[in-house]
Simulated scan of single mutants.
Amino acid sequence: MAIEHDIPKIPTPLRVLFEFESTGWFETSQEERKESILPKLSEILAGWEQYGARMVGTIDRDIFTAGAAGSKGWHACLLYDVPTWEAVAAMTNSFRATGLDRYFRLEAIVGRPFFLLEKAES
């Protein structure tokens, strides 16, 4: 039996999954990580609130993995509700603008809550 689907509605806010991968991080010293990179990363992530973004949840794969991300292409995922497309672009750009893209790759995937488990706010 087929389920009939209308054209998916783009939710407000947008549901955004950011895939986060460590790249140049592995070529840095412990000192550089502790004194420069991690404080800057913490500041950028905390600053995402200025775009109206609300964190829904995160997942870090480090329980059973170590080193390069491998075929998955990410080390952690950050799930946010974000009010606008411009805010998603600003959040992604924050890595580029601060030079964090030298150490990490960030990619945004935009979708919506899964209709069988959550209702999208519209």
Rank of each mutant, 00 (worst) to 15 (best):
A68H: 15
D81Y: 14
L106V: 14
F115I: 06
D6Y: 03
L79T: 02
C77D: 02
S29L: 11
I44S: 07
E118C: 07
A69N: 03
M55E: 14
K72M: 14
T84Y: 00
V16L: 08
R105Q: 08
G73E: 04
D60C: 11
V82D: 00
R105P: 03
F115S: 12
K119F: 08
A90S: 13
R54H: 06
L106Y: 00
W25S: 05
F20Y: 07
W74A: 01
V16W: 00
S29P: 02
E32V: 14
D81K: 11
V56N: 00
S36G: 13
P13H: 04
R15C: 13
H5Q: 07
L17Y: 01
Q50V: 15
L106F: 05
I37N: 06
D60H: 10
S22K: 15
F64H: 09
T58R: 10
T23E: 06
E49L: 05
S29Y: 02
W85C: 12
A89K: 14
I109A: 09
S42A: 14
G52Q: 05
I44P: 10
L79A: 01
M91F: 05
S122H: 09
E27R: 13
F20V: 07
I59A: 08
E118W: 14
R102F: 07
G111E: 04
T65W: 13
A66H: 15
S42G: 12
L116Q: 09
R105F: 06
A120M: 09
F26M: 02
T58G: 12
K119L: 10
T28W: 11
D60T: 10
F104Y: 14
R54E: 13
G52T: 05
Y80G: 01
Y51K: 01
I44C: 14
M1D: 06
L14N: 02
K9G: 11
E86D: 15
R15G: 00
I44D: 08
M1H: 05
L117E: 12
G99H: 07
G99V: 12
I3Q: 03
A76S: 15
E31A: 15
M55N: 12
E27G: 10
P39H: 05
I3A: 04
K119I: 08
V16D: 00
E27M: 11
S36E: 10
D81T: 10
G47W: 07
M55Q: 15
R61M: 12
I109P: 00
K34M: 12
E86Q: 15
F114K: 08
L106R: 03
E4W: 11
P8Y: 13
L41F: 10
F64K: 06
E4A: 14
Q50C: 13
E49S: 11
T23P: 04
S29E: 05
T23H: 03
A89H: 07
I109D: 03
I63A: 14
F104R: 08
S29Q: 03
T92H: 01
L14D: 01
G70K: 10
S42D: 13
F114Q: 07
E21C: 13
V82C: 06
Q30N: 14
Y103D: 04
I37T: 09
S122V: 10
A120I: 12
L117R: 08
D81L: 06
G24C: 12
L106K: 03
S71H: 13
I3S: 03
E43A: 15
Y80P: 02
G52W: 05
G70F: 05
D101W: 03
F95A: 03
W85H: 15
E35A: 09
T28S: 07
V110H: 01
P8M: 02
L41K: 04
M1E: 09
D62T: 14
Q30R: 15
A90C: 13
V110Q: 01
